[in-house]
């Protein structure tokens, strides 16, 4: 898995305006921001800057330390970016020939370069916005918000269970890998793995995965028994009921959507 859980471990405690805001509002705000960003045309740099401004305002509202946000800001999906890069060397659109020394030349497509750069900026904005919103919203509230927005009961329950057991199993995982490391002498910082062929290493790793799966199957059976013991009868019940949105909240949702539309129109107007 590409992410470092500890590094991105989401929620940051706080009581800022953004933290206190209703999860449903935050989810709509996030969706509007993401859709708007995705709809912006290539090369609308001024509007990207505006969107960056919105990002900055929300970041300030969240009162999350800048250092922390900056640390998370460097997280980009690196490998998938690499799929993007080669296209700037295509002889497409507006391109220039670069001839650094005789006998070797390559072309650089300015059109593609602008396109790739635009994409990176928009992708970064989206990621950062999601990071900030999720840093200021507890997972339980995200779930309750999604439930209120129509997420089926069963999925809500499954996500909740998964969230709860994620950390329990990550701990077990950690213990397993530590036990493995304690028994194998890997040269640190090098790729030369001591101890066996690829085949053997795969077997060991697979065995650990299998062990993890077996344990979780057993555990899920015991959890089910514990649920039954307290009266679970196959129906999912919960005592959380959604409070209806106020007029002001509806109004702010409408305002977000309008602002998003404006941004898209503005960007397209400027491009034309």
């Amino acid at each position: 898995m590409p992410v470092d859980i500890e590094q991105r471990a989401s929620y940051e405690y706080g009581d800022s305006l953004l933290h206190l805001c209703d999860a449903r509002i935050k989810i709509t705000l996030l969706m509007v921001y993401l859709i708007t960003t995705a709809l912006l045309p290539v090369g609308a740099w001024a509007v990207y800057l505006l969107m960056g401004g919105v990002l900055l305002i929300v970041a300030v509202l969240s009162e999350i330390p800048a250092s922390l946000l900056l640390k998370r800001a460097l997280l980009l999906e690196v490998p998938i970016l690499l799929v993007l890069i080669p296209q700037i060397f295509l002889k497409t659109g507006n391109f220039i020939e670069i001839n650094p020394w005789s006998g070797f030349a390559f072309s650089l497509s300015l059109t593609r370069l602008e396109r790739v750069a635009s994409l990176l900026v928009r992708s970064w904005l989206s990621l950062q916005f999601a990071v900030i919103i999720m840093s200021a919203t507890r997972f339980e509230d995200v779930l309750a918000g999604l439930r209120a927005c129509g997420l089926p009961r069963m999925l809500t329950a499954i996500f909740g269970l998964m969230w709860r057991y994620l950390y329990v199993l990550l701990d077990e995982m950690h213990n397993l890998t530590q036990a493995r490391r304690a028994r194998s002498s890997t040269l640190q910082g090098s790729f030369k793995q001591a101890g066996g062929s690829v085949w053997w290493r795969a077997q060991v790793t697979g065995g650990m995965a299998g062990m993890l799966m077996l344990r979780s199957l057993d555990r899920s059976q015991r959890i089910y028994q514990a649920m039954q013991a307290r009266g679970y009868d196959g129906e999912i019940r919960s005592e959380a009921a959604a409070i209806p949105l106020t007029k002001a909240q509806y109004f702010s949702i409408a305002a977000f959507i309008l602002a998003g539309l404006l941004m898209v129109l503005l960007a397209n107007g400027m491009a034309a």
Binding site: V168, L169, A209, S220
Partner: peptide
């Protein structure tokens, strides 16, 4: 229900395994 939830957590955790 718990099976799906816990197995999902286990697969998430298992994604940490590499060689």
């Amino acid at each position: 229900l718990p099976l799906v939830g816990v197995l999902a957590a286990a697969i998430f955790a298992g994604q940490m395994l590499n060689f």
